[in-house]
Design a protein around this nucleic acid. Sequence first.
RNA 1: GGGCGCGUAGCUCAGCGGGAGAGCACUCGCUUCACACGCGAGGGGUCGCUGGUUCAAUCCCAGCCGCGCCCA
Length: 880
Amino acid sequence: MLDKTYDAHAVEEKRYRMWEDAGAFRCDPKSSASPYTIMMPPPNVTGSLHMGHALTFTLQDVLIRYFRMTGRDTLWQPGTDHAGIATQMVVERNLAAEGKTRHDLGREAFVDTVWEWKAHSGGTIQNQLRRLGSSPDWPRERFTMDDGLSRAVVKVFVQLHKQGLMYRDKRLVNWDPKLHTAISDLEVEQRPTDGQMWYFRYPVQGEPDRFVVVGTTRPETMLGDTGVAVHPEDERYTDLVGKTVILPIVDRPIPVVADEYADPEKGSGAVKITPAHDFNDFEVGRRCGLEMINVLDRDARLNENAPAEFQGMDRFDARARIVERMEALGLLEKIEPNPMTVPYGDRSGVVIEPWLTDQWFVDAAELAKAPIKAVEEGRTRFVPAHWSNVFFEWMRNIQPWCVSRQIWWGHRIPAWYGPDGTIFVEETEAEAQAAARTHYGADVALERDADVLDTWFSSALWPFSTLGWPDETPELARYYPGNVLVTGFDIIFFWVARMMMFGHHFMGDVPFRDVYIHALVRDEKGQKMSKSKGNVIDPLDLSEQYGTDALRFTLTAMAAQGRDIKMSESRVQGYRNFATKLWNAARFCQMNGCAASPDFDPAGVTSTLNRWIVARAAATAGTVGAAIEAYRFNEAAQALYQFTWNTFCDWFLEFAKPVFNGDDAAAAAETRATAAWVLDLILVTLHPVMPYVTEELWQSLAETRDTPLIRARWPDRPGLVAPDAEAEMDWLVGLITALRSVRAEMNVPPAARLAILVKDASDTTRARLATHRDLVGTLARVDAIDHVTEAPASGSAQIVVDEATVILPLADVIDLDAERARLSRDVAKQDGEIAKLAKKLANEGFLAKAPAEVVAENRERLADLEATRDRLKEALARIG
RNA sequence: GGGCGCGUAGCUCAGCGGGAGAGCACUCGCUUCACACGCGAGGGGUCGCUGGUUCAAUCCCAGCCGCGCCCA
């Protein structure tokens, strides 16, 4: 016998271990089944599970478990990425606690230390995923720094280089002066700031008392100014173009150039140009042939190119000093408040400097062409579709991707430099030496590039590197491309777009057919969860408190397309209650001897009740499957919830009680078997969302099962329909509901059993009443049902059900005024509807232009309403 | 400044051209032999505002107001 409530703690660990030990999560490359692949977005190796993970992995697991049950050969590829900067920071922080820096250890020893850290602390999230019930193919787990994946990285780098798509260039990059590395545009956070605009006067050479006023938000960069730009059509400055101004403090003559970047509407219309410290200025400098003078060092202090008094000074101290000096020189025109955005490093939290350095770049614009085409042609489909616009916007304006990072933890760039700086990019040092020998005609000492690659470079290879590429493995042939990538919108650029670029380039096909973009999980008030706000809800706490299935059901039910999820504990609690409800329904079935039989044929049931529930069950399975396949997770959850609770528990099981206790042994047996079959169907269809409670019930309810539930087959019975049974049961439900309603309203004591009279019943209604006499009796507490032609004059409550009027003699309890009020209110309600419909049907435009079936439907509805209204009026007349 | 999304019951949200829905909360009743994490019955909404298209608009279009996000 099952316990009275479901104990998630006792079940989850046991069931998970059973699945994993049995190899239930594995793909089967030799299978003849059609494959279904999801590449798990590899979480950061330093990470631990947060609510966003819980959502994304729950949805992926729902898909995987569903398709596994439909008979597909599923591969859910798990793994983690090495998170270059984040991981290095964690290990450096540990070293700092011992008073050491990575430089004390040296590169090799430091990298060894990181590997040790990973061995001890790196597996957190994998175990948390297990607690979430995720069913990826664990034995195939990969890490972006694995030998195989590293080999793929080197191969890709070398090939791109040989194809001219990977190159070294001196360009401005986003420099993090704290971490001492370049970072990508995407790792820069633009923070709104109340800045200032300083207006400086630059003297025009050879024209005493003439000045050009330029505005700047970063005065310290003026030391690197190499020009002043004005708009070519700005008449105020036409005569100045080609002349020279003297850069104050530095006393450097710099040219005035014409360039459309200068906005005549903004400030003075003239703008100082610092090509080595501003992305826009860099472009202007290129166009106008201006010199590039780098005045900052790697710490963002002023360097040797600045005047002596500034050298070694911090950028912000220098800013204050510059302003002072300009003011002293009488060259500070004015200062205005200026709302602006300032770039910060998302890891370091310091202001990022555009800085001129030598870095490796990928020609992203070229690689973006094929993915753009793929999305345009629908070979990769975004769901919801509007995300494709975001994708296009970024891909069509893409900048060269800076992939080198000045850190130690990561894939070291396979480039070697000869004594004269010639670059040899090869897969191994030996090959680089050979290439150098060919180039120089002799052996020379080579120095390897010190930098490593951006972590996202290796993540971009994930859909094929995890399958064995560059080797041509059977897995690669079978599981690439994947079916769907499930992720949040925040990594469309970081990761999705880059996988598409490399997937196309190296595999010649899209990496996945669908990209399902889900919502962000927020707190109850709709705020983004963050550690600093202290509003983080730990999914594992919820899982601990309410059970993993409740958490998973909540996330699934709330995953409506296009809307963020506001996580609320009361919802989780509600779905915990749902799990308990299911548990108790199963317990009831067990207590009543409802045993699943392999011989049971749902198409062969005879009673209306059983034909009805079988049809509804089959329809629900269809709805749920279709919803999951369309990524409409909330609809799947809703259909499951409604069928299980509101159809199966509230009605079917209640109807079954009198059958079980009745005299008709054959009907009882059929109903027992049907109940068992429907319960099994509920367990199967609910399993992708609530794997634990369903598996536990599946194994507890029957002595032997051919397979664990995780490997059971999804029901596919589209032929199980019974419209006549559904109509009959809908009528019965309506009758019982109406009886209960009038009893409650008339304050009939709940325990009191009534005899009812039925007037004007059709043959159909008479037959239905005869069939379901016991069910009405039990559920509406009715003792006797008699047909009459004349209603008793008074002392009754009356309800209208279709053509029939049901009379409840309530001589002892009836409050005639209350009954009159109730009937009058019903009449008024019908009249309101009738008026609306009559108006619509009187409209000639409607009759002429609306589809015939809509007109007919409205006519029918009107007739029904009028008939009901008339019977209600008669009932009202009877009580006077 | 550009783009995207969202304003539906007290709260959280589905629905999205032809009869306003769910969960939670609320009210009333119930020791009904699976379940009080329950059962039964209820109350509650000019579907942000203004126009337009249409026989018909919560749904489509335009503008406005409010909120959020992304990009500059």
